[in-house]
Design a protein around this nucleic acid. Structure first.
Lengths: 214, 214
DNA sequence: ACCTGAACACCGTTCAAGT
DNA sequence: ACCTGAACACCGTTCAAGT
């Protein structure tokens, strides 16, 4: 439990440890005292490098957005949109705590504005009017957030052993009352999250393409 | 602060009060002690009617799903899907705490399975294969969750005075670095959430229609 | 049967004291 | 400059005691 790391404390190291702790024990279990323990230090020492717990949580959100990485704008807007959306979905779905955390904090960091600026810029350059470009942004953003939500936070999305067992239990329980649920049960249990995400993205990007003003 | 209501405590009344409290003060501020105070009772009395705080939070999620209401299946699958998706989005977007709360608790209640069963049943009856029906469910669900997220939890989504001011501040700050953001600023500030949601839903439902197997 | 007060094991955070 | 111990105002929850 007590790591014996003796590198000096920094904001980055604290946030890194917080991410690891939340991955393992869940974000609700994250406390200043436990985080200090992991870093081999008293809780109060953290305040020398960080403004408080809120600052740590902000840092974790920043960490999530940094995980999206730079966006390659070499192709056309559809290629860029697909790459950016997929990278964002993967960055969020990689941590169970990502969606709940983002949803209680402000998502409007420089990183998120940067992605938005690139995406809308490519649409405008391709001949879209600002209003349609704005619509397109919202639809894509909904898909990314909504799918990350489903992948990381529903029993059918998570693919650990415990989630599988719970999912099977639920399907047994509700399968008799809800026959149509039973009819798609195998897909719920076994669908590829990447294929599933791309399927919806295909629909959305084609729809946006079809709505390009003449 | 202390309401003088003297009706007997019940689970429903406690959950109702919790919803109202979270609406006003945010879900993080919700505690057993403060909830007791609102109900004119000591915190410990709540345990006579409720298993604990988790039980209250579960009740709040149940309350959200109940708010979606019964689904009218009189029209074709697209009409039903639009009605159900819109009702769900509105129920979730009505409370800032809805998305964060659902995202940390299990969403697989009888209510959510019921909606899913109806939707998939209509698609199957219309001639869709189970795999495509399952895809359709995921895409629609992402849009609902993702848009509720954006409407209730982003500065641009919320339409109270404080959010407007923060949004304008952010646009001033980042508008110079990100010109394409500035180009769509007025739409971000003033778009109709219902029209925006329907725009994306149009794309998604049309796309699903186009993928109906021959 | 329902409510309460005191208590326990936890929180985040402040602050004076140490080195 | 950085770390610490004690303290404060909060948590959720248990339990024996009241009515």
């Amino acid at each position: 439990m007590t790591t014996t790391e003796r590198r000096p404390l920094t904001r980055e190291r604290i946030i890194e440890a917080a991410v690891a702790f939340a991955d393992e024990h869940g974000i609700d279990a994250l406390s200043m005292r436990k985080l200090g323990q992991v870093l081999g230090v008293e809780a109060m020492s953290l305040y020398n490098h960080v403004a408080g717990k809120d600052d740590i949580l902000d840092g974790m959100v920043q960490h999530l957005f940094a995980g999206i990485g730079p966006i390659d704008t070499a192709g056309d807007w559809k290629v860029t949109a697909r790459a950016a959306a997929t990278a964002a979905k993967n960055a969020f779905a990689a941590h169970e705590w990502a969606v709940p955390l983002i949803s209680t904090r402000e998502t409007t960091s420089e990183a998120s504005f940067g992605i938005m600026d690139v995406m809308i810029g490519m649409l405008l350059a391709d001949g879209y009017d600002p209003e349609t470009a704005h619509h397109a942004w919202h639809v894509i953003a909904s898909h990314v957030l909504g799918y990350a939500f489903q992948e990381a936070n529903s029993v059918f999305g998570r693919r650990d052993d415990q989630a599988r067992e719970e999912a099977e239990q639920l399907l047994r329980e509700y399968g008799r009352i809800f026959p149509n649920l039973a009819a798609v049960a195998t897909y719920l249990m076994e669908c590829s999250h990447d294929e599933e995400f791309q399927y919806g993205l295909d629909i959305i990007l084609s729809g946006i393409e079809a709505r390009k003003p003449a």
